[in-house]
Nucleic acid binder design. Sequence first.
DNA 1: CATGCCCCCTGCACGC
DNA 2: TGCGTGCAGGGGGCAT
Length: 282
Amino acid sequence: MPELPEVETVRAGLERHLLGRRIVKAQVRRPDLRGPLPPRMAEDLTGRKIVALERRAKYLVIRLEGELVWLVHLGMTGRFTLSPTDPGDPGKHDHVLLWMDGGGHVAFNDVRRFGSMDLVAAQTLASHKSLRDLGPEPLSEEWCSQSLAIALEGKRTSLKSALLDQRVVAGLGNIYVCEILNRAGLSPRRSAHTIVGKEGRSTTRTARVVAQTRAVLKEAIAAGGSTLKDFAGVEGDLGYFPHSFAVYGREGAPCRAAHCEALIERIVQSGRSTFFCPSCQR
DNA sequence: CATGCCCCCTGCACGC
DNA sequence: TGCGTGCAGGGGGCAT
């Protein structure tokens, strides 16, 4: 599923192709994604120009004329495909179709239907149920060693689970949390509060997490987002190629750290796979 | 409040 | 060509 870098890549692609364009026709082919789509969504989208494309955590915030916001979450398998002309027969899992002025065509495809969409007044966006409890953006200035320490103070859950908690920091998912903890040299099994250091320390563990999070996300965004089998970018396959991970998906393979002879292990935490190096990560 | 479990859905890889 | 099992990047609801 798309995590923050993939959603950012989709946002940038949509912006490049759809900003300033008008939706001349919209069609909902399946109204039941994760939940029901907003009633009359197709009618409400029709005729509106797209005036901004933003992202908050893993949500696409698509601003439309008339102070209306189309809020889209890609879930596990959601993707947008663009084509210059109407491709004809929609795909089996193309649930929402848009026709743009100038002939462009947009399909929202979601095999597992874990995606979600809503239409909200711009004024009420910040208080939207899906956005109001989100923590800071990991690439923003406000997220720092100190704010992370405050968020993790007293948390008894695992460090892995804590970083997946969108209220702690917003936008990280299973793959990147594994990669971040590997780079930060921290065990995913640690109780979250144990990385909160004493004040005044120069290299606290929270600082390492913050620094590695930024590094991993920036690299992934630069690479155009990572690609797994059910993620496709907005411009077809152009610019998308498999990303190489240090630990994710590498169970039993040798750790790539210099002089480390350990093998990557896989464990299950909160029902999801965690990959880590038992030697490098403590 | 915090935490953990279960579920939504479909497709694919794997072993038999 | 088959079948059953486990697994997949998210998040919300519910029980404890």
